[in-house]
Amino acid sequence: MKPPPPWKGWSCCPENWVMSNTSCYFISSELNNWTESEKNCAGMGAHLLVINAEEEQLLILQILEREFAYYVGLSDPKGTCQWQWVDQSPYNRSITFWHPGEPNKHDERCVFINSRKGIWGWNDAFCVETQKSICEMMKTYL
């Protein structure tokens, strides 16, 4: 009898991480700039959050606190409006959640999620600002 495909077996996430269908998420309570936030995620075998679907955005919003902003893995390293995800997945303009009027400055090259008047969205920001962050990794299948 052959074993079931890996996605049908047991899966898990590290302790204190939130599990979804395919990923594990960690909400960092530390305030760091974007680069340090990505380094901290990498140190845990993860990367800053990459949002590829509306369902993922909606899932994440359920576990965030409205009074904080959270870095995600989207940046514009050269300030040319060429947005890139840290995992090299394509930036899809049809799956974006920018606040109205964002992105608005070429020298704001990093992105965080925040709530404005009760509505969550993406905001471009200076990469040196300190914010909380969201790390993501694939679930481990056993």
Rank of each mutant, 00 (worst) to 15 (best):
I27V: 13
N114T: 12
K117W: 08
E36L: 09
A125M: 09
C12V: 15
E54C: 03
D107F: 06
A53G: 11
N16S: 12
L59K: 03
W122F: 02
K117T: 07
I60H: 02
S28K: 01
L58F: 07
V72C: 02
I119Q: 15
I63V: 11
G118D: 07
K8S: 10
I51W: 00
S11L: 06
C24V: 00
A53T: 13
T35K: 15
Q57L: 14
L49W: 01
C127W: 15
I95V: 07
H99C: 07
N21V: 08
I134M: 02
Q84H: 12
I113N: 00
T96H: 04
G43S: 10
P100M: 08
R93E: 10
K2W: 12
R66T: 00
G73R: 08
E55D: 12
G101T: 05
D76R: 13
Y70D: 00
A42R: 11
T22I: 13
M137C: 10
W17K: 07
V50R: 13
I134G: 02
F126Y: 15
M44R: 10
C127E: 09
W98I: 03
Y91L: 01
I95K: 10
Q57T: 08
K139W: 03
R93H: 13
I27F: 02
F112H: 10
M44E: 04
S23G: 03
W7R: 15
S20I: 07
G118N: 10
E30Q: 10
C127A: 14
F112E: 04
I27Y: 00
G45N: 02
E38C: 03
N104D: 14
L74M: 11
E65C: 12
E15I: 06
C41F: 01
N40L: 07
G9N: 11
E129K: 15
W7P: 06
P90D: 11
G118A: 09
V18D: 03
V86Q: 13
D87A: 02
P6D: 11
E136N: 03
P6N: 09
N32T: 15
P3A: 11
I51Q: 00
D76M: 06
P3S: 09
W17E: 14
E65V: 12
G118P: 02
C41G: 01
F112N: 04
C135A: 03
C41D: 00
L48D: 01
V50K: 12
S20P: 00
F97N: 03
A69G: 08
E67P: 00
Y141I: 14
A69R: 13
A69Y: 08
P5Y: 06
T80Q: 13
I95C: 05
V50Q: 09
T96Y: 04
N104T: 08
N104S: 13
K105I: 05
R109H: 07
G118S: 10
W34C: 02
